[in-house]
Simulated assay, not measured.
Amino acid sequence: MRELNRPSSTTLAKTIEACIDNGDRLLNESYNLEFVSPSSSRYYLIAITQEEFAKAFMLYLVYSDVIPFSKLILRAMSDHSCKQLVGMLMDYMIMHWDKLEEHQEILDRELELGDDHFPLEIASALDILRYEKIGRWEKHVVYVGGVEPHPVAQKKWRKDSGTNENRTRYMFVSMATGALGAHHT
């Protein structure tokens, strides 16, 4: 698919900052709904919060020239399931450990996979994003080896991530984009 004219770095930086600000505002608003019924309102607000941070991360990848700016990327930034899958990828990149021993165990498991492998649920999330979503939009339906995506990847994006995980996503995307001049804490 044809690439679009890439927005200026200034425009991308301002858009990334707006996504981070939106996510932060939504996250703070979700605290007010903690004891309100029905709890579904809080769940949906938290899901939208995750999507704002995922959108900021996708824009950062464009800003950093990791991925091209294209109609497919714009569509992925508008697609709820794509943004949830990107949220899973962000969670994978954020190290989750409290003790140094836990960190070493995580690294050991990663090294056992080899240089070109991801954990199964992350590989499935990447496959779903690339082949089931973007691949279909390209009108190239490709099934990877005829294997169905891992059930964890199919269901995890629907899971209520909660405000703590979104706070971590906020910190991750804020730090990753810190070089853009965004001043978030």
Rank of each mutant, 00 (worst) to 15 (best):
E51H: 12
L107W: 11
D79I: 05
G114D: 13
S9L: 11
N166C: 09
W157H: 13
R136A: 06
R42I: 04
P7A: 15
S30Q: 00
D24Q: 06
H117K: 13
R2Q: 06
A18P: 00
I73V: 10
G135K: 03
F172K: 06
A176N: 06
Q104R: 08
M93H: 10
I122T: 02
R158M: 09
R169S: 01
G23Y: 02
V142G: 07
D65I: 06
L85T: 00
A76K: 00
Q50L: 10
H183K: 13
K55V: 04
L45G: 04
A182H: 05
I48S: 14
Q84L: 07
K83Q: 11
S81R: 02
M88C: 11
L100C: 02
A125T: 09
D116R: 13
L126W: 13
R167T: 04
V142S: 14
E102S: 01
S39Q: 14
D65K: 11
A179W: 14
P7K: 15
D79Y: 06
V66W: 13
N5E: 15
P151H: 07
L180A: 03
L180K: 09
G114R: 13
L126V: 12
V147L: 15
P119S: 10
L74P: 02
M93N: 05
S174T: 14
F57D: 01
I48W: 14
Q84S: 06
R2W: 12
I94F: 04
W137M: 00
I94H: 07
M95L: 07
E29R: 15
A56Q: 09
P149D: 01
E101K: 02
N164E: 11
D91C: 10
I94M: 05
S124T: 14
R169A: 03
K99G: 00
D108R: 04
K71M: 03
L113A: 10
Y31G: 02
Y43I: 12
L59Y: 15
H183F: 07
M58V: 15
I134W: 07
P151K: 05
A47K: 07
R25K: 09
L100F: 07
V142T: 14
L120Q: 05
S40F: 12
C19I: 02
D116Q: 12
E101M: 03
L45V: 15
E132H: 15
S37R: 14
G162H: 04
Y31W: 09
Y92K: 08
A179G: 13
E29P: 01
F53I: 05
L113W: 04
L74C: 13
P68T: 11
Y31F: 13
H184R: 09
T168P: 00
S70P: 02
S9A: 12
I94T: 10
R130H: 12
I128F: 09
W157D: 01
L27V: 03
V152S: 00
L89I: 15
A123P: 07
K133T: 14
L89E: 02
M175I: 14
E102D: 08
E121M: 08
E52G: 02
L59E: 10
A125S: 15
G145Y: 08
R25C: 06
F57W: 13
M95S: 06
I122C: 03
E17C: 00
L59I: 15
E101V: 07
N22A: 10
R42F: 06
T15C: 04
